[in-house]
């Protein structure tokens, strides 16, 4: 089951290319995509490989582990996050390679540092249909 959060978690709009990703996230699994022709592992998902445009791509379940590549504590923004400040936006570099945009969930944002190990957690979207991956310090 998804974790509780005070962060806004707006609905997502899965497409034929991305619905597998979002269905997996609702089950607590974080997927990336791998091209079986050239080996590129990539994110966000898309039907054709961004390196070679091959359609022979497959889903890969990640370990949900990574490290902070860059982070920022946002103190001023517009809706729907304006009531959630301060919150942390970050790129996390997954152990499998891709860097993805996300939030770091922490009570002590000032203690975060680049390179810090993090692991995935999942928060249910407002419509209850899906979940989005976020990360918390290990």
């Amino acid at each position: 089951m998804a974790d509780e959060t005070t962060l806004p978690t707006p609905d997502v709009s899965p497409t034929p290319e991305t619905e597998t990703y979002w269905e997996a996230a609702a089950e607590g699994r974080l997927l990336v995509t791998e091209c079986t022709d050239c080996g590129r592992v990539y994110h966000p998902p898309r039907a054709r490989c961004p390196d070679c445009l091959s359609e022979d791509t497959e889903w890969v379940e990640t370990r949900g582990e990574g490290e902070v590549y860059a982070h920022s504590v946002t103190r001023q923004t517009g809706p729907p996050y304006d009531d959630a400040t301060p919150y942390v936006v970050a790129y996390v570099e997954l152990a499998e390679g891709p860097r993805l945009l996300t939030n770091i969930v922490t009570d002590d944002p000032g203690a975060l540092s680049v390179g810090q190990p993090v692991e995935v957690c999942f928060h249910e979207t407002d419509d209850g249909e899906h979940a989005v991956p976020r990360f918390e310090p290990v």
């Binding site: 978690t9 997502v12 709009s13 497409t15 946002t74 923004t77 936006v89 945009l101 989005v132």
Partner: peptide, 26 residues
């Protein structure tokens, strides 16, 4: 096509450039 993977997380103009600054500093 990237919206669900970015806007979901409260990204804006300032915090995206802030990530660049953070990494450049690092």
């Amino acid at each position: 096509p990237q919206a669900d993977f970015e806007e979901t997380y409260g990204i804006g103009t300032v915090n995206m450039y802030a990530l660049a600054a953070r990494r450049h500093m690092h």
